[in-house]
Design a protein around this nucleic acid. Sequence first.
RNA 1: GCCGCUUUAGCUCAGUCGGUAGAGCAUCGCAUUCGUAAUGCGAGGGUCACGUGUUCGAGUCACGUAAGCGGCACCA
Length: 663
Amino acid sequence: MIKITLPDGSVREVAPGTTPAEIAAAIGPGLAKAAIAARVDGELRDIGRPLEQDARLALVTAKDEADALELARHDFAHVLAEAVQALFPGTQITFGPATEDGFYYDFAPAPERGPFTEEDLPAIEEKMREIIRADKPLVREVWSREDLIARWRAEGESFKAQWAAELPGDEELTVYRSGGDWLDMCRGPHLASTGKLDPQAFKLTRVSGAYWRGDQNNAMLSRIYGTGWLNRKQLEAHLTMLEEAAKRDHRKLGAEMDLFHLQQEAHGSVFWHPKGYIIWRALEAYLRRRLDAAGYQEVKTPQIMDARQWEQSGHWGKYRENMFVIPDEVPNTEDEGPVVSNDAQWMALKPMNCPAHVLIFRQGIKSYRDLPLRLAEMGCCHRNEPHGALHGLMRVRQFTQDDAHIFCREDQLVSEVAQFCDLLDVVYKDLGFADYAIKLALRPDKRFGSDEMWDWSEQSLRDAVAATGRATPEWGWEELPGEGAFYAPKLEFHLTDAIGRTWQVGTIQTDTVLPERLDASYVGEDGDRHRPVMLHRAILGSYERFIGILIEHYAGRFPLWLAPVQAVVATIVSDADGYAQQVVEKLRTAGIRAEADVRNEKINYKVREHSLAKVPNLLVVGRREADEGTVALRELGKEGQSVLSVEDVIARLAKEALPPDMR
RNA sequence: GCCGCUUUAGCUCAGUCGGUAGAGCAUCGCAUUCGUAAUGCGAGGGUCACGUGUUCGAGUCACGUAAGCGGCACCA
């Protein structure tokens, strides 16, 4: 007999080979029905997998939502694979995991058929429902490697065969059999049968290409994505959330609110319209005040530098494929012949500001007393990004970083990083992001520098965050092995937006490589020359992307200090036009971005239009207000209005419109 | 860069079997002066992304190019 300890501490003695399902049945019929899987000594397992030795056992039900979702999504992926093979013979299966909101499966379609398209999805969904309703048992089997490889080869499953051959030797190879003869190699666990899934709780959402094992040198597979849940209600809630997310898409709002546009003649670069650039300017002015107060000195460096400079910094070798290069010669002005000769010298648009900041540091002799030196730049950078990577404001080819480089002594590093964390905390909270996570990206396999340097850098960053009290799980503190830059570890700051998505924006990273390459040094207390440590850091990342995130976070309803138009004065009758103009003038004098709407339209029309345009304050004036020197204030998102004197409205809006650091 | 889809008026979209393009909103004009989410009437507006081909004839079919969208890869 073996001893099974349940979560309440009670112990049951059962015969070896008893399954968790049988134990659930022994406890009660309710639990037997609700139990979908088991945790055995903490490990999630099939409910039908026999217990062979003493163990702690917890039965998993739908109430254990994270586990239940993970299982259901993984099962949906298998059902998807089975459905696709049933409908499209000759399709090879490869790999299909659960994702954050569902699942996907990568297929190698029969060559004559080609990749799947969205038109295939309804039929596949229908087949999946059929498989679910058939309630096929999912049975775990352990196979020998030889048998498994032979089976995959026999079925023409070359990807599976290759994978089975390459799995580590000590790993137990398991397959799951669905009903009769369909099987997939999988570590599991799975639900007991396909019928445990809700046929109304999934939806296939899209198709795409994906490389086998994520490597672009490998075959392109055809991936089908789905979203999967425990029940129909959850699915519908998720689909509604997706619609909400689509409504706040910055590309859509950017056009609707006339903030910016993109066009193919400058693809990857942004045309900022007056209203969009107001947001930029407000953000930039705010950040500049914060940086000034935090001891940064702002600089401006060249847009174009000679290729030799980029060679020396290492960018020419490591980063050239992402740089825009420019011939350093007078272009041929004749109609015939090439514009540039074959022996042109090259220059390049800067993809980063760091080398230029080192060049400023190197001017004159620096003493240890000059450190830390914090050089900031609203640096406009160009990167020749792959076309497929471009995405609205989020990924562009010309962007402006809120960049800075801190040159300091080794003994100043922890304090500088900690101060940066504090500054960044203030800025994020001011901008409406109370929730963010801090992560430490550790050394990658391919890297520069000694292990001692990496030990020291990683520990310094760790210590600095610990000094601020933020290296805790509540702060989302996490260490990410292998994610660091090739020259240094980095701290990453991930914002959570209003609908729960995360965005990596801020970063700070140590760098001892570039000061070395560009021979930056200072004279120490001892009279010798020393290398400064360089910290690369950004709070917003890029203005373009950060404004994109702000648009989506606020769904276009910006806090007043960032709103492009802060107030519209709308008339009811043309008799009030002159008064409206006066009110607008007073608002503008008080520094409020106000416009008059004296069009010959009904007030209903104006209210609707300015509400849709997300104007935060609508000041309605008719004959009565003009006579009394008042306005009827209607705030966006609120019902009704309040009648106030012009002076009161101005005082109120002027106070509300102050940037957070000036309140 | 790779896979799939898309591209028609400023915007959102319709356009049948290949026969020379249409709606709503927006714009402009006229009327209307109205109290909190669309006043009425009228007018103008198109190289159907671009190129090549098939055809008597192409928005429609084929091929190519570009951009956009969804992913993959990339983001040192």
